[in-house]
Design a binder for these strands. Sequence first.
DNA 1: GCGACAG
DNA 2: ATCTTGTCGC
Length: 223
Amino acid sequence: MRYVPPADVAEALRVQEELRSRVDLVGPGPTAPATVAGLDVAYAESGDRLAAAVTVLDAATLAVVDEAVSVGRPAFGYVPGLFAFRELPALLAALDRLAVRPDLLVCDGHGLAHPRRFGLACHLGLVTGLPTIGVGKTPLVGAWTEPGPRRGDWSPLREGDEVVGRVLRTRDGVRPVFVSVGHRMSLDNAADRVLALTPRYRLPETTRTADRLCRRALAGAAA
DNA sequence: GCGACAG
DNA sequence: ATCTTGTCGC
C-alpha cells in the first residue's frame, strides 16, 4: 500500500481535518506492553535526504529486539503543524520492514498537543492502527507551569480549557519533556510508559536507539 | 500588523 | 533537523 503525500498546504490541512475525528483519545492502551517501538528521522545537511529508523525494544529489559531503516527524501516542506507529512512516508516504509509488530509506538513529536489536535503521533497511530504516544523535546502549543524538580513531577499542558498533554520531568533536575496522547492511549498511561522508558536519560530509550540507528543509516547510505 | 512555530 | 567551542562533571 503506498502513501501519497498532499500536493500543498491546503490539501494537507484538509487531510488533517478529515482524519482527526477518527483518533481514539481514550485508550487506555497497554499498561504492560511486551514490546515498545521508537521512531526517529535524521536529515543530511543538504536537507534533501533523510533516514527514518524504527527500533523495537523489549519493554521489560529495554533491549533492542528488532529494527529497520528507510532512506529517502522529505515528502513535504517543514511547516510547523504539518510536520507529519514530511516524515510519514519514510517512517511507514521503515515500519513495513519490521519483523515484529510492536505493541506501542513512541514518536519524536507531539500527538494531541498540536494546533488542530492531530500531530505526528496521532497521524502515525491512525495509519498503523497501533497505540501511539508523542514525546516532544520542545513545546508546539499550550501553556504550563514549571513542574517540580524530581523525576515523575509534572504539570498539565493546557490550551484554553483543554488539557492537551503533560509536561513531565523524566530525570531529577533536567528539562522536562512534553508528553501527549497519539492514538488509543490515555494521558496517564502515556506518562507512565514514558517514565518506564527513562530509567537513565531524559529521553525515552526508544527514541535514543532510533536516533542512533537513523544517523548511522544516513552516514552509511550512498549519496 | 507582529512574533511564534514539533523535527 | 543541522551547524558549532568550550566547559563542567562523572
